[in-house]
Design a protein around this nucleic acid. Sequence first.
RNA 1: CGGGAGGUAGUUCAGCCCGGUAGAAUACCUGGUUUGGGACCAGGGGGUCGCAGGUUCGAAUCCUGUCCUCCCGACCA
Length: 491
Amino acid sequence: MSKEITSRAADYSQWYNDLVLKGELADYSAVRGCMVIKPYGFALWENMRDALDKMFKDTGHVNAYFPLFIPKNFLSKEAAHVEGFAKECAVVTHYRLKNDPNGGGVVVDPEAKLEEELIVRPTSETIIWNTYKDWIQSYRDLPLLINQWANVVRWEMRTRLFLRTAEFLWQEGHTAHATKEEAIEETEKMLDVYATFAEEFMAVPVIKGVKTESERFAGAENTYCIEALMQDGKALQAGTSHFLGQNFAKAFDVKFSNKENQLEYVWATSWGVSTRLVGALVMAHSDDQGLILPPKIAPLQVVIVPIYKGDEQKAQIGVKVDEIIKELKALGIRVKYDDNDNARPGWKFAEYEMKGVPVRLAIGARDLEKNVVEVARRDTKEKNTVSLDGIAGYVQQLLADIQQNMFNKAKLYRDEHITKADSWDEFEKLLDEKGGFISAHWDGTAETEEAIKEKTKATIRCIPLNNSQEEGKCILTGKSSSQRVLFARAY
RNA sequence: CGGGAGGUAGUUCAGCCCGGUAGAAUACCUGGUUUGGGACCAGGGGGUCGCAGGUUCGAAUCCUGUCCUCCCGACCA
């Protein structure tokens, strides 16, 4: 099989596609805009999901599941919400097929038209708040802290594997609170969870911030986000957390009795991350040889490749490898021994590099004699010969080093690509020649934001949290501004 | 949804202009030699040419429609 990968310099988009396809994360499907997540890619997602799920549980949330289908009228109850999603909803109109009387297979049975059409959820606020109405009566029912793992559908015109597909997997947290302050606290807490996950597990540094009004979630009072930077200098929104105010409570009439026995509308949040994170992971770390996966979530952390002449050597190596595997597994390390006889070592090396396995151990007869093993790390491609005594501990430490090194490298790149611009010329030049985040003054109006987008395709990614206040002039209009915001071209 | 490109063996592609027995490399299977960075020899299996119509004695090739993918743009996470 041809396994060559397009270089980043030659064609960044194609490089990304090559990694996803040849790294066996996903495949295209027969359905427009939808992908098949392959076992290796799904194992990666499962590791991400499990880590996130634990963090949600640790912060007091529980999982539940709400329907895939949403009655059409639910969506229209919150004006901004329907405005934001109407253009990309799949709609179920019929409930039955029948044999084509003209003989061409099956057709939709026109007599089986639904009285009320169903929307395939693009997000679940409406169905969930319709349910919460029944669940919440008193302040004693609050807070309600629920998450669901689900698939959602947004009918995108232009799709890209993991980054933007018509159907994707995600989690969506939906919480209800007695006070505004508590809801805002929840919104910020979950943003912190996402940032911690991105940095500690994915080794992707992120900037926490809030969205401007035009980038805000449809139906939210305020949208918080984490923004990551890809190797081509484009930004990617990696997660969002919304303070929904009382918008959905009012739309779905969700009230509670407070301690003074007065009825009040409930305060809400919602927050989500999706399989898009897999795309972020690929683009943040990988190189022209293939994927580079951070050890904490890599499906495989260590692969062992035997190098032998004849069955006798292979058997001897196998005995030693069994011991190594036992030691590694005792430390909870995910390890695979590839003794497949059909592929030679060089082929295997290239294959596992493409798939981003963090550590490779190569062991041959010469190594057995000297009681050593060759250890290769994927992130730096360094190779070392290491004693087999205490190898498991060595590998465990190495995995931790790789995790840290990947984060450091990504952070260095990210930090070098946050640049201040104080004139329009400088701003445009930075966008075209350097990319990354550009920190610049903005007059705070949607009109200016839109004009800048028109001219440069750059959007305001976020207003960083705890942003330092600084007097200045808007990069475009020259009007006064009290703080810098981060602009970038984005995915 | 607009513009461009593409869909032929598991994969990458040639053949199409000019209609006439479906090809190569690689992967796969068998046997053997091999194995420290994508091995080699010999033999073998595998494709209703995206799908549906049409033209024709005859269609991968010409015509029409349709589906899927890629790149660019508009829209959006």
